[in-house]
Simulated scan of single mutants.
Amino acid sequence: MILVMARVAGRIAHRLGQPAVIGEIVGGLLLGPTLFQGALAHTLFPTDIRPYLSALANLGLVLFMFVVGYEVDFGRLRGCGRIAVGTVLGSAVVPFALGALLALHLLRERHPASRAGFILFIAVAVSVTAFPVLARILTDRRMSGTWLGTIALSSAAVCDLVAWSALAAVQVLAGTAGQSPWWVLLIVPYAVVLITRGRPLLERALRGGGPEGPASAGSLAVVLIGLLVSAAVTQALGLHFVLGAFLFGLVMPRGEGTGLKDVLLPRVQFTTTLLLPVYFIVAGLNVDLSRIGASGLWDLGLILAVAVTGKFAGTWLGARSQGLPARRSAVLATLMNTRGLTELIALSVGLQIGLLDGGLYSEMVVMAVVTTVMTGPLLRCFARPGDREPVRQE
């Protein structure tokens, strides 16, 4: 049923000019407690089966975050020059500052586990750009590989790195299940070992994966084992397991000239296609929009205003400061305002570590959906055929 829902909702979203993942997210929310006072959710997903759904959803998250890290291509940064730098600074600093001010306002009626962690988390949450959804939108709009598309993807990759690093700091501030915060600092030597020792070992293991090379079952097994171990290590250190999966994807050898990436990604993405709809259901079970009162609507409007204004204005100003024309800066700002699934994952971390309550989590999920839905219509307003020009070197 979940897979049928995802397929139907994805097709509807695609016909409306939206990425399929938006339909899947909205479908997951509608199957939650929002409709019929939760009767539909309790009938379809009884309490005793929800832990099993969560296990499948977590496995899907691990694979998805691996793909996100694996698709980060630092080679794109070459040739983007100062405009990419201006875009990154504007799309990170401005929404971060506005998000911190928003957090101070939200703190007046809330008492999270850590005030400092809450402020940092809200600032990070409104600064996120969804790299995978952005890549899909660029492909659908035939802007993948264009100059503007390359700058947007490069900037989104850097923003993702900053966001997930800041999220690790948030977990330290919020406390980690009774562990000493200093224990979390072991993530630094772990990352160093993974880069300096793990990557060469992976290259040798994947090169000798068998007669089929990177296409062999042995190569896939090596990758999956390493991925799950990395996720388990970060969880053992008191951080969320998605950080370990993302880090493992970053250090994976790209195998230029061997076809390694072209072989591995479709196999992993097929699995995420099966498991991510389960995550949307699990996330939707925590969202009850029917209980948002007048104060919740006010907070939701404020969250949307801060998220859209901060990301759009920050990116626009950053690009304009480096000489990009106003309209093309608006196209870039529209692309960077995309949040989607990456935002949902970050929000789930905040919910699990006690920084978000149910009401605020629901409002932030709505913000993630609305800002992603905005991308298509705004692109139709600002984009022109000339924006599909190929990458140029500066």
Score class of each variant (00 low, 15 high):
5 M>W: 00
8 V>M: 14
9 A>P: 06
14 H>V: 07
23 G>E: 01
24 E>T: 05
33 P>L: 02
36 F>S: 11
36 F>L: 15
37 Q>G: 06
44 L>Q: 09
44 L>Y: 14
47 T>V: 09
50 R>L: 03
51 P>L: 11
57 A>E: 00
57 A>D: 00
65 M>Q: 04
67 V>R: 11
68 V>A: 09
72 V>Y: 10
73 D>R: 05
83 I>E: 12
88 V>S: 07
90 G>H: 13
101 L>P: 03
104 L>H: 06
113 A>M: 00
119 I>H: 12
123 A>F: 04
124 V>N: 14
125 A>C: 06
129 T>I: 08
134 L>H: 08
136 R>Y: 10
145 G>I: 02
147 W>S: 06
154 S>T: 13
158 V>M: 14
165 S>V: 04
166 A>Y: 06
168 A>I: 03
174 A>H: 09
176 T>K: 07
179 Q>M: 12
179 Q>N: 04
182 W>S: 14
197 R>F: 10
199 R>W: 14
200 P>E: 09
202 L>T: 01
209 G>T: 12
211 P>G: 10
211 P>D: 11
215 A>E: 12
216 S>F: 12
221 A>V: 12
222 V>M: 01
227 L>R: 12
243 L>I: 13
251 V>T: 11
253 P>Y: 13
255 G>P: 09
255 G>E: 07
255 G>K: 01
263 V>D: 13
265 L>S: 12
265 L>F: 07
271 T>L: 15
274 L>Y: 06
274 L>M: 13
277 P>Y: 05
280 F>T: 00
287 V>M: 06
288 D>T: 01
289 L>Y: 13
290 S>Y: 06
294 A>C: 01
295 S>W: 10
297 L>S: 11
297 L>D: 11
297 L>A: 04
300 L>Y: 12
301 G>I: 00
309 T>N: 11
322 Q>E: 15
325 P>C: 09
326 A>N: 06
326 A>H: 14
327 R>P: 02
332 L>C: 05
333 A>G: 07
347 L>P: 01
348 S>D: 13
356 L>N: 04
372 T>V: 10
374 M>I: 06
376 G>C: 08
376 G>A: 15
379 L>I: 07
384 R>T: 13
386 G>N: 12
394 E>Q: 10
